[in-house]
Amino acid sequence: MSFSALGLPKYLVQALDKNNLNNPYPIQEQAIPAILNKKDVLGIAKTGSGKTASFVLPILANLENQPKLKDRHIAVLILVPTRELALQVNDVVDVFSKNLPFTCKTMAVYGGTSVNVQMKTMSNVSVLIATPGRLLDLISSNAVHLDEVKTFVIDEADKMLNLGFKKELDEIIALLPTKKQTLLFSATLNPNIESIQRIALNNPLIIHIASDENSVELINQTAYAVSPEKKGPLLRHLIVSKNMQQVLIFTSSAFQADAVATKLNHNNIQARAIHSKKSQFARTTALDNFKDGKLRVLVSTDILSRGIDIKFLPYVINYELPRSPKDYIHRIGRTGRSENPGEAIALVIPDDQHHFNVIQKKMKTMVELIDAKELDI
């Protein structure tokens, strides 16, 4: 099936062609026609499955010929859980907005940067991408109004709830008009998502493409049994011996992310840490440089385990295991995306062995465990 067969206008199909996007993913095949027809949608699909384009494309198409709203009254509100995801969604909207035959101003707002600057540039925005806390700040300052929103999107809803945004979500939903189109997208379906669905969605089309939620078949997985004091040397040995030029490393804390990055740099392996305690400028710069291949190693907390699309990422290393098996799957899911193979490596200390067995059981995949003592490090 082609994108044109889904009912998208010619100018958006041309934008897709320019970006070498020719065949829609399953979530896009089902969501795009429904959203074009102004139907509410609940979409459940794993990260990396094309969810963002599945709502951005029809939303932009539906904005054509829409009456102009009063200043600071937005037509489309897209809620996301993190700054990084806000910027990513904004980038997707920008890519497809270039071909629009009408004016569509888009803006991403999030914490960690000046609210005053965002207030001043809010004028005539049609599509607003926002994190919940910053959106409420702007509403309280009368910088933006939600009473004319035509389309409301909650993206990565499960992540948003896991981060404790339930109260903010309730406040925002209460400010929206009753008559609107609502789109809810999530990587998983759980009771919290179902409760939001009942409150926010009106007779939605339910799209559930999550049967392969734990699918890791495109990821070559390896684990190394290592003592805690040998983790650093083993990490450096793997990066050098495998000639890794783009590797994402996950740690359990901001402190550990900084420590790992510092040690790598001291050993002439270019690395930067990214976590919630970094400034937005530092986070954006590090991520952009990493995506562009200008930075060899990015060391992160779980801030990057969901919702960030890094195309063709070849390596992910779990320097420390996450508490949840699902978080492990989301972490390694940064590689092996969109039909591109990748390699995931876990460093497993003795205290982690039982937990790693649980993770493997959840994935329904046994991972080869190599004794680091056999390596010349």
Rank of each mutant, 00 (worst) to 15 (best):
N90D: 12
D91M: 14
V92P: 01
V93C: 04
V93W: 00
D94S: 03
F96K: 03
N99D: 12
C104V: 04
C104Q: 04
C104M: 05
M107F: 11
A108N: 00
A108M: 04
V109W: 03
V109P: 02
G111D: 05
G112H: 10
V115T: 13
V115Q: 13
V115E: 09
N116H: 14
V117P: 05
V117F: 11
V117Y: 13
V117D: 11
Q118P: 09
Q118G: 09
M119I: 14
T121V: 11
T121P: 08
M122E: 03
M122T: 01
M122H: 01
S123T: 10
S123C: 09
N124H: 09
V125S: 04
V125P: 00
S126E: 05
S126H: 06
S126M: 09
V127D: 01
V127R: 00
L128V: 07
L128H: 05
I129T: 01
I129Y: 00
A130M: 12
A130Y: 06
R134S: 02
R134C: 04
L136C: 05
L136E: 05
L138A: 06
L138C: 08
I139H: 07
I139M: 14
I139G: 09
I139K: 07
S140A: 15
S140G: 13
S141D: 15
S141Y: 14
N142D: 13
N142V: 08
A143F: 03
V144D: 01
L146Y: 12
D147S: 09
V149W: 03
V153D: 00
I154M: 14
D155G: 03
D155W: 06
E156R: 07
A157L: 08
D158K: 11
D158N: 10
L161G: 08
L163C: 14
L163E: 14
L163F: 14
G164T: 15
G164K: 15
G164R: 15
F165N: 10
F165Q: 12
K167R: 14
L169T: 15
D170K: 10
D170N: 14
D170V: 08
D170C: 07
E171K: 15
I173R: 02
A174V: 00
A174F: 04
L175C: 10
K179M: 07
K179A: 07
Q181F: 06
L183N: 07
F185M: 12
S186I: 03
T188K: 08
L189R: 12
